[in-house]
Amino acid sequence: MNIPFTTNPRPDTGVYNAKLGIWLFLASEVMLFGALFSSYILIRVGAPEVGENAWPLGSDILSVPVAFTNTMVLITSSITMVMAWASLAMKKFDKYKMFMGITIALGLTFLVIKGFEYNSKFEHHLFPSTSNFMAIYFTITGLHVLHVIGGLIVNFYLWIPGAKMWESDPERFTNRIEVAGLYWHFVDLVWIFLFPVLYLL
């Protein structure tokens, strides 16, 4: 006996199991990042208006052009992720390989840029212990980086070792790309919130 609705949607709910699962997972992730953004608001509101501990303007400390580049990198990777899924839906496996490859490359590019950015902060002796602004910056972006790494591991698995499933169960494999894509878009979306909050405001 097999577990039903692993591939085809259940008629009365309209989704297959993994799709409901990933939406629930993302709901939980929203609460995680929501709590962190709320913490950001609470600490910022509590900071003094002037003086040593006053809240700095993000763009005075952080590099907006670098972050803007990274924003573009992630948005592009979200687009290629959709293209990868669409290729499979159109039964074009070679195109899928290409678009997934680009997605992974863009994800890695994001990490490399982020690495340089962290490094320049450390060189200027800016650490989480420096100020609460730096602390929340490192915490939220750090957690986001962990999510990017997690997404890259999944994407890499689906790119090379897990792609064998295309031969045995193409529909389910297409679903897997859709689910991984939903997660990837979420990671992208977190960054899109994170960029203005930390760098611009």
Binding site: S39, I43, F127, P128, S129, N132, M134, A135, I136, F138, T139
Partner: peptide, 9 residues
């Protein structure tokens, strides 16, 4: 973070 990196949340 507070305990390991010395931040002050």
């Amino acid at each position: 973070m507070d305990r390991l990196t010395g931040s002050s949340f």
